[in-house]
Simulated assay, not measured.
Amino acid sequence: MHNMPNEVTEVFAAYPLKVKQALLQIRQWIEHVASENLQIGELSECLKWGEPSYITLNGIGTTLRLGRVRDSDSKFALLVHCQTRLVADFKEVYPDCEYDKNRAFLLDSAQPLPEQIIKHFILLALTYHLKR
């Protein structure tokens, strides 16, 4: 997944600088989490709903999208399919984090990125179907 598709590059380029920097860091963590867990295997990077999206080629994960929160120059989201239990389950472990219903884990690029929490969310998304 090292080479970013052109359409994904264009979307990242359109984000406000701090959001772009945060999301590019998270993209690196997605690669890192996938490389550390052999069950995840290879990832596909594409656009879904106009947002950079990451999915396991072997089907064990749910799609993880990276997006900007509308009307904010600093907020962004890690989004998953709204019919998964991922966000609900994550809220039980991290109740003090910010969420958008059952579809997104919200973050603010004006704050330090909680690396371990984000990596945990990435791991849960990329291995979602293993636990079902």
Rank of each mutant, 00 (worst) to 15 (best):
P52N: 05
V69N: 06
G41M: 10
G50Q: 06
Y94R: 11
D96W: 00
V69M: 13
R27E: 10
F105P: 00
P95V: 09
E31W: 07
E45G: 02
V80R: 08
I55S: 15
L38E: 15
T56H: 07
H32L: 15
D96K: 13
N102A: 14
P95C: 11
R85G: 02
D108M: 06
L107T: 02
S72Q: 08
S44G: 14
L78G: 09
F76R: 06
C46A: 11
L47H: 09
E42G: 01
H32N: 15
L66I: 08
V93L: 15
E92Q: 15
F76P: 02
I26W: 01
I30Y: 05
L57C: 13
R103T: 13
E51W: 04
K101A: 13
D71E: 14
E45D: 01
T56I: 06
S72V: 08
A34F: 12
S74L: 00
D89L: 14
S72I: 10
R103W: 06
D100Y: 12
L38D: 14
L79E: 13
D96V: 03
A77P: 00
S109T: 03
K101W: 04
Q111C: 07
V33F: 13
Y54C: 03
L43G: 07
L43D: 10
L64T: 08
L86D: 10
L43H: 07
Q25W: 00
S72R: 09
W29R: 09
L24I: 12
I40G: 01
V80Q: 03
Y54S: 00
Y99Q: 09
P52Q: 04
A110L: 05
Y94A: 03
W29M: 12
D71T: 07
C82H: 11
S72M: 07
D89G: 15
N58H: 12
K75A: 11
V33L: 09
V80G: 12
H81P: 02
G61I: 04
E98D: 12
S44C: 04
N37Q: 12
F76H: 08
L107G: 00
R70G: 13
A104R: 01
Y99R: 00
I40T: 10
L47S: 10
R70A: 14
R70I: 07
Y54L: 01
I55F: 05
L107E: 00
G61P: 01
D73A: 08
A104F: 03
G50R: 08
N102G: 12
G67N: 02
K75V: 02
P112A: 09
F105V: 02
G67F: 04
Q111V: 00
C82P: 05
L24H: 11
I60D: 00
Q111H: 09
